[in-house]
Simulated scan of single mutants.
Amino acid sequence: MSFRTSAVRNTIRPHAMYVAALLALGASSTSAFAQMSPALDRASISVGAFHTEPRIDYQGDTNYGRIDTGTYETKSVTLPRVKASLLLGESQGLDFDYYRYDKSYNPSLSGSTNINGLPLTGNGKLNAKLKLDLANLAYKWWIGSGNSVFGVGVGAAYYQASLKGTANGVLNGIAGNASYNEKEHAYAPLLELGWRHAVSDNLRLYADASGIKKNGGNIQGHIYGGAVGVEWYPTKMVGVVAEYTANKINLNRDRDGSDLNLRLHGPAAYVKVRF
Results as ranks from 00 to 15, higher is better:
27 A>N: 14
179 S>I: 03
145 S>A: 15
230 V>E: 03
150 F>M: 10
137 L>H: 04
266 G>A: 01
239 G>E: 05
259 D>Q: 13
25 L>Y: 10
169 G>D: 02
77 V>G: 07
29 S>N: 14
275 F>L: 08
129 K>T: 09
13 R>A: 15
235 T>R: 08
19 V>G: 04
18 Y>R: 11
244 Y>S: 07
198 A>V: 06
266 G>R: 00
9 R>K: 10
153 G>C: 01
42 R>S: 11
88 L>G: 06
20 A>F: 13
66 R>F: 00
175 A>T: 15
48 G>H: 10
84 A>H: 02
22 L>A: 10
269 A>E: 01
175 A>W: 07
223 I>R: 02
209 A>P: 00
197 H>S: 04
269 A>S: 08
184 E>K: 10
239 G>K: 03
221 G>Q: 05
225 G>A: 04
54 P>V: 02
32 A>S: 15
135 A>R: 04
198 A>Q: 05
271 V>H: 05
134 L>T: 09
127 N>R: 06
185 H>F: 05
86 L>M: 07
270 Y>I: 00
144 G>Y: 05
17 M>H: 15
25 L>F: 12
33 F>E: 14
79 L>D: 03
239 G>D: 05
11 T>R: 12
62 T>I: 05
250 N>M: 09
181 N>E: 08
1 M>P: 12
163 L>S: 07
133 D>V: 10
259 D>V: 06
14 P>C: 03
159 Y>A: 12
24 A>E: 11
229 G>P: 02
46 S>C: 07
63 N>Q: 07
157 A>P: 01
249 I>G: 00
67 I>H: 00
